[in-house]
């Protein structure tokens, strides 16, 4: 059995400090791929230690939106700030100009991301995956990074797998390594894009458990997921996306008992 510790963030010295109470502020974000407008004015504010779950039909723009938050996608209009800093752009004479690549890279250190398909580095061990960015990006001394990395892996139930390569791990184990890898950078915000949808059913629980624990310990998170059990228990707020806009948001109770929009009702009836 997998044992998930109840002090995961202690491995990185507690909840990473954030400069402001508002961790994410997205205002009227618009994004197109060529002619296709995918985000048509999305605004979302996420407070410190808040957990926001995003739901919505396939193609509604959930992935695109959270990729905009760490500037894996450019946006055409609107603005996104994390911890009070504009992401991907800087302001000059009232206009937004795309920031230089090293600055964008620096901003991404504060934002952890967990992908649907894990995207672990296959040529590095589990521990290697976790310590790579702290050493190369943050300049953490190797010994310290290894110590932190081991502590993180142990807390997500993988101390026996430090030296295993990703190909030698199950999907659930790989995703837990991916979460540890993101946490090792001590991010102020964690983004999850359907972290369990590529997993066999019996492995979903161990990953959700880690995420639930992070939420309990006060990590700020945006989670795209269709695991409504997770939303019910963990989310502070649920956001429903439809065709590039947020059409409804509220507490999990609201969504389970009295959703207002027809599209929301239709969507929920399909996945519940």
């Amino acid at each position: 059995m997998t044992t998930i510790a109840n002090d995961i963030l202690a491995a990185i010295g507690g909840v990473p400090q954030t400069a402001s109470d508002v961790v994410v502020e997205a205002i009227d974000v618009r994004k197109s791929f060529g002619r296709l407008q995918v985000l048509k004015g999305v605004s979302l504010t996420v407070g410190r230690a808040e957990v926001v779950v995003m739901i919505g039909a396939s193609g509604s723009g959930k992935t695109t939106f959270i990729r905009c938050i760490n500037h894996l996608e450019k946006i055409q209009a609107g603005r996104i700030s994390v911890n009070g800093h504009l992401i991907g752009y800087r302001e000059a004479n009232g206009r937004l100009i795309e920031d230089r690549e090293p600055n964008i890279a620096r901003q991404r250190r504060e934002i952890g991301m967990v992908f649907q398909r894990f995207n672990l580095f296959p040529h590095l061990t589990a521990l290697g995956n976790v310590i790579e960015a702290p050493i190369r990006v943050r300049g953490v001394p190797e010994r310290e990074a290894i110590e932190t990395g081991r502590a993180l892996l142990a807390r997500v139930g993988l101390s026996a797998k430090e030296e295993a390569y990703p190909a030698q791990l199950s999907g659930g184990q790989q995703q837990r390594v991916a979460i540890a890898r993101a946490l090792a950078m001590k991010p102020a915000l964690m983004l999850f894009d359907e972290p369990t949808s590529a997993l066999d059913p019996e492995m979903i629980g161990e990953v959700l458990e880690v995420m639930q624990e992070l939420a309990r310990e006060g990590m700020t998170m945006i989670v795209v997921t269709h695991e409504m059990g997770f939303a019910r228990e963990v989310a502070d707020r649920v956001v429903m996306m439809d065709e590039g806009v947020i059409i409804e948001e509220g507490t999990p109770e609201h969504f389970f008992t009295a959703p207002e929009q027809e599209r929301t009702k239709a969507f929920l009836s399909k996945i519940l």
Partner: peptide, 24 residues
């Protein structure tokens, strides 16, 4: 996805190429 994971960890282009993409 390898490049994206590296970027999301704050790696620069050069670091991503040298440490992640080229070795693979």
């Amino acid at each position: 996805g390898q490049t994206e994971a590296a970027k999301s960890l704050g790696m620069t282009y050069g670091l991503t190429m040298r440490r992640i993409v080229l070795p693979q």
